[in-house]
């Protein structure tokens, strides 16, 4: 078990393995269940210290990808390594570096949660005394220390979710994998969990997060991969993904015409009239807005109000996974006063 990843690797393994700079490296990773390709040749790289998100609809292959890394799923083809250690030939080294908080509860029901943590730390080679200390710290970190002598089944739903994180943290992992960590939890707990994992990431822990909450990915992740049907569709930062969508500009006109006025600007993707509003879609709404107002003024139209509706990661996600163009639906809004 290591406290400081880079130091331990250097001290214990003078001949550094390949891909040492990557926390996760997957090349053409495949997993099939009969005719179903759960992973259809995924290639993915996650750098050390990165906060990386996996987005995708149910059945996209996110959990299969994670379970392949930790040894709960046997790959059908391709290669994967964690901090340079192959997940099959160097499985012990790879698994020692991972802390996993799965979506489904899979906790030892026979023992109080403090002992469960001590056992988990022990499996990773941590001595009894140190394991006991880490268990208490992990329970304090997630705020359920006073329940330390309670068995998992007797915890509330929120406490169970907190415990899953504590168990992942007790081995002080270099790579923390969180599979839907905030699924079904209340807003307060969600923010608590965000705070904890953000601090861990700031301290150098690499984090791989799967989530259905787009806001979570936008807020936390340095980069996200969008997956669908076992394939990786794209990898980019949330910001650059959002730039791929179109903004919607809504201009309220004093006397709106029945037909949209002719405006000669190649940045405009489409425009139409909706009641008293002229609706324009363009890649960068903030940049085109002044030119639009000038052009309308030149054509004799008075603009009373204007809203720019920014494209969201959710729209990009939906468009990528459905094969539609982004930018039509609206989830976030930026108002610009005239």
């Amino acid at each position: 078990m290591t406290d400081n990843p880079s130091h331990d690797i250097l001290f214990q393994f003078p001949l550094l393995p390949t891909n040492v700079t990557l926390a996760i490296s997957a090349t053409n990773l495949k997993k099939s269940y009969g005719e179903v390709q759960a992973l259809d040749g995924i290639s993915l790289s996650v750098e050390q210290g990165e906060f990386f998100g996996l987005l995708g609809p149910n059945g996209a292959g996110k959990t299969t990808f994670i379970n392949t890394l930790v040894g709960l799923v046997k790959k059908s083809g391709g290669d994967a390594s964690v901090f340079g250690y192959d997940i099959e030939s160097d499985y012990r080294e790879a698994r020692d570096r991972i802390g996993l908080a799965p979506q489904e509860y899979n906790v030892d029901r026979f023992f109080p949660i403090r002992e469960v943590l001590i056992h988990k730390a022990g499996y990773h080679g941590i001595t009894d005394e140190e394991a006991a200390s880490r268990a208490e710290n992990a329970l304090k970190t997630v705020g359920i220390y006073d329940k330390r002598n309670t068995r998992f089944d007797w915890l509330s739903g929120g406490m169970k979710r907190r415990f899953m994180l504590a168990r992942a943290l007790v081995t002080d992992p270099e790579l923390l994998i969180l599979d839907e960590p905030t699924a079904g939890v209340d807003v307060e707990l969600r923010h608590d969990l965000w705070e904890i994992i953000t601090e861990l990431n700031d301290a150098g822990t690499t984090i791989l997060l799967t989530t259905h909450y787009i806001e979570e990915a936008e807020r936390l992740c340095d980069r996200v991969a969008i997956m669908d049907q076992g394939r990786k569709l794209t990898v980019a930062s949330p910001e650059s993904l959002m730039e791929r969508g179109s903004d919607t500009i809504r201009l309220t006109l004093e006397n709106a015409p029945n037909e949209p006025p002719a405006i000669d600007d190649e940045r405009i993707e489409s425009l139409w009239i909706e009641g008293a509003q002229l609706v324009v879609t363009a890649r960068t709404g903030g940049e085109i807005a002044p030119a639009l107002i000038r052009a309308l003024d030149h054509n004799g139209h008075t603009v009373l109000d204007m809203n720019i509706e920014r494209t969201s990661l959710e729209e990009v996600f939906v468009s990528l996974t459905n094969g539609e163009e982004p930018g039509k639906s609206v989830t976030s809004q930026q108002e610009v006063a005239q």
Partner: peptide, 17 residues
Amino acid sequence: HGRWNEYIHEVQTAPLS
């Protein structure tokens, strides 16, 4: 029982041979 309740994953995902 560990398989049924999936807590054998605690052992499977550990660096034990």
